[in-house]
Nucleic acid binder design. Sequence first.
RNA 1: UCCGGUGUCGUCCAACGGCAGGACAACGGACUUUGAAUCCGUGAAUCAUGGUUCGAAUCCAUGCGCCGGAACCA
Length: 572
Amino acid sequence: MSKSDAKNDAPKGDEGPGNFIRDIVLDDLQTGKSYGRLVTRFPPEPNGYLHVGHAKAICTAFGLAQLSENGKCNLRFDDTNPEAESTEFVEGIMRDVKWLGFDWGEKAYFASEYFDQLYAWAVKLVEEGLAYVDTRSEGEIRDTRGDFHKPGVNSPFRDRSVEENLALLEQMKNGELDEGSAVLRAKIDMASTDVKLRDPLLYRIKKVPHHRTGDAWNIYPMYDWAHGQSDAIEGVTHSTCSLEFVNHRPLYNWFLKAIGIEEPPRQIEFGRLNLNYTITSKRKLKQLVEDHHVEGWDDPRMPTIVGMRRRGFTPESIRRFMNKIGVSKNDGVVDVGLLEHCLRDHLNDTSKRVMAVLRPLKVTITNYPEDQEDSFDLRYFPPRRDIEVLDTSTRAVPFSREIWVERDDFMKEAPKKWWRLAPGKEVRLRGAALITVQDVVEENGEVVELRCTWDPESRGGAAPDGRKVRGTIHWVSAKHAVDAKVRLYDRLFDHENPAAAENFLEHLNPASLEVIDNAKVEPSLANASPEERFQFQRTGFFVCDGPSKEAGELVFNRTITLKDAWAKLAKK
RNA sequence: UCCGGUGUCGUCCAACGGCAGGACAACGGACUUUGAAUCCGUGAAUCAUGGUUCGAAUCCAUGCGCCGGAACCA
């Protein structure tokens, strides 16, 4: 885990897609507009789990910091609302950011560490007549804010004396006032066309313990009052956030100016990540978990970082994806197919090839002696023309008279262009032998066994006379097979834009999970380690489920299928 | 209806007054002991209307569409 993890995963080949913030930063660096340093930050609120949308924010902020030799990106928890926040989430977020491959240096920052400074600045604003305590109810304040067409009305307390304001603020802080009875507001302009500038709130009373400051505070700063100042305290130069904060920028700048920050950070907004077939609303994700539509935050179907991790995603593939989609101010929807492409691409480069039969069908090789066994040393990685240094490691795969093959690889009546098992057809058992189907054994109309003969001259799978055998299938020796449970995952939603529906739950994909209890996998897989990734040849990429393995159970989660040209052909 | 943001292949991102290009997806072919990967190829877009200009995706004007904004949330 280090900075270098995330350094060399820019898209292969060309310069990659656009990133307007990178252009701004590069320009600022050259023209000296960033005060001779480069500091960014990722500022999550510790009130939930990180998801793929946050991954874009993380890659963006940490990626920008890498633009300069001395650049750095802080991890700062925006913990200004103790009600929903907890150290559990702090730890989870740290684990996720680290897993994604980013390093935030010696320490993580917390907005709560700046509460004293923030308070001192608030006192200063009051003293300068730029803030006042409003002692009306939440409803009254809201009702006098006006709307998009009507200006707001000044609070009757707007012109309290400095002394009175100071005294009231002190009382708020000391817990002498009830929740909801008073707030501190900036004195800006109740008639502004920008509603955000109509005397925004700085502090509200909340007599709630904070997960880091305990009972020290009875008032907590609002987002706008805390964020820019936290950036300033940390010397942040470029403060990136999503488009919904564009409206906050004037306020962000107003506060920094009001308290006299000399090297103010610059807020830059970009379009957040939207993915089709995916939900990234914290509220909805929470609902999925709480209503048990999934098995938890780390359910492999969840777009959370922990979920993706358990699904078998690699951090590299996620970073490459973020590098490919670019950064702009368009509020677009990226095709989840691109994410899947990046996943397959990286897994293809890094996963060991092994054999596993998901839906076993027995094959007996009638002319193979009962007491005989063979063992083939098969490579973990296929030869590739496009890779110079190839891993040539192998493992032994046992072979015997009875083997398991994939039920889907046999058809009683073969359609055109079917190259797999069918009565009378010859296929190759990958790395082992050529076999021909002689008899099909059925029980109650169900095929239960294939009786085949093999060509003893074809050991290893090569055709002795050079005859063309088009079909190659995977297999596992029955005698040596290891039982495993396999979970086949698919997209959680079967609708492009589940969030648009009246009720997004209607679009849950009923086939998002299929559990196979009796898969037959090759013996080498018994030693798979937690989170180890494989390609089950011809079926897809799988990951050894960590929690199950640690509990002594062998379970593989399907990360993603292989592309399937036959399925496409068959549809026509 | 007010303020702000944004409109380029199906999707994402380029082109910054000078031949609209890349990636994913799609389609066709080659190769193949994974119907994978790899390789080659094809189709596919400037929101609309007017203006400026030798020349406009780019500049100007008007219109239209989409997104965000009136939390004691972030």
